Computed example of a mutant assay.
Amino acid sequence: MMKGSFVYQMLPARVVFGRGTIAALPAEAERLGLRRLLVLSTPEQVGLAERVRKFLGDRAAGIFGLATIHTPIEVTKQALELVAAERIDGVVSAGGGSATGLGKAIALRTDLPQIVLPTTYAGSEMTPILGETQDRRKTTQRSPKIQPEVVIYDVDLTLTLAPLMSALSAFNALAHAVEALYAPDSNPIVEMMAEDGVRAIVAALPKVLKEPTNPEARASLLYGAWLCACCLGVTTMGLHHKLCHTLGGLFDLPHAQTHAIVLPYALAHNAPMVPEAMTRLCRAIGSDDAAGALLRLGHDCGIPLALRDIGMPHDGIAYAIEQALTNPYANPRPIEVGPLSNLLERAWAGAGL
């Protein structure tokens, strides 16, 4: 049954979804009136950036291929120097969350239009949220300037994403929907997108692992990730995202792996306080134990199951708790040292729920 009054903020993003949609890039640039575009990528994705430049032709003014994890401010400053020197009027972010994050950081400071070509399922392209790091601390902010104008989802660009990275990225997407279901500003529209997004990802992920180049399975996974990202863009983040941002900033942990490990523990931590959200998650996942099902799915995907496995030191738990208690995100369960310490100890050791 539909709830009573609610507020749903639609985000002004244009989405092009399908196979071979990278070919729409020149027309989208024309629609935005862009003539001097800077293509952004990580060093590993420079090949894709070169391909994007060829599609753009004389609309491409250059490539900046130094995007990196957690969007360090010093890298953004380097990119801004090129933006000024080349009189850039827009950016094309080609790749995963690192490239998208750099495009957002540039747009925040310049208000330049963004076109994003995602190659993963992380979902940053659908949000007005930017996380940046400086001096081992990651901060997040929201702004209309951060929201990309155009997102081109090309299923073909995901076909070569390694199965393990696909799974890690998909768990990142799942986290967006999970927290959106019990966010204080959730609403029936978000609940509908979150539940369908989780259902699509959980159903498609095993198929992608078995047949990585199966375009139908990849399309379903990308569709689910898109829905989950839409949820993140219009709701408040909770304890799970606070922990992941804190751990990533403090210990330079890989973003997707951190999400994948922490998610079942954070969900189990909050579950007693959010029965309605748990009902939706269990229905979407097809299990009476949503947190346990996610932990088993991670195991089946070969995902690292402990924070210690991805480089977090045990003596960092106390420091992480201290940072997580600073400006905590809204969460259905009060943030207290004892339960939080237990959560992180178990996630660090991969001790199970």
Rank of each mutant, 00 (worst) to 15 (best):
T42L: 00
P43C: 13
Q45I: 02
V46E: 13
G47V: 00
G47L: 01
R51P: 02
R51C: 04
R53H: 13
R53V: 15
L56E: 12
R59Y: 11
A60R: 03
G62I: 02
F64E: 01
G65V: 00
L66D: 15
T68E: 01
I69Y: 07
I69C: 14
H70F: 04
H70W: 15
T71V: 06
T71Q: 12
I73N: 12
L80C: 05
E81G: 15
L82E: 13
V83Q: 01
V83R: 01
D89F: 07
G90I: 06
V92M: 06
A94N: 02
G95E: 00
G95K: 01
G97Q: 01
S98F: 00
A99L: 00
K104M: 06
K104E: 04
I106A: 04
I106N: 04
I106Y: 05
A107N: 11
L108H: 07
L108I: 07
R109L: 07
R109K: 15
R109N: 07
R109P: 02
D111Q: 12
P113Q: 12
P113N: 11
Q114L: 02
Q114G: 03
P118K: 05
P118S: 05
T119N: 02
T120M: 09
T120C: 15
T120Q: 06
T120F: 05
A122L: 10
S124P: 05
E125S: 14
E125V: 07
P128C: 09
I129S: 03
G131T: 09
E132A: 07
D135S: 13
R137S: 14
R137C: 11
T139H: 10
S143R: 13
P144M: 09
K145L: 07
K145M: 11
K145Y: 10
I146V: 12
Q147E: 14
Q147I: 08
E149P: 09
E149L: 14
V150T: 09
V150I: 13
V151F: 04
D154Q: 12
D154I: 11
D154F: 13
V155G: 03
L159H: 06
T160F: 05
L161C: 04
L161I: 04
L164K: 10
L164A: 10
M165Q: 12
L168I: 15
L168D: 11
F171A: 08
F171N: 14
A173C: 15
A173T: 08
A173P: 10
A175Q: 14
H176T: 12
H176D: 08
E179F: 07
L181C: 08
L181I: 08
A183M: 09
P184Y: 06
P188Q: 12
P188Y: 14
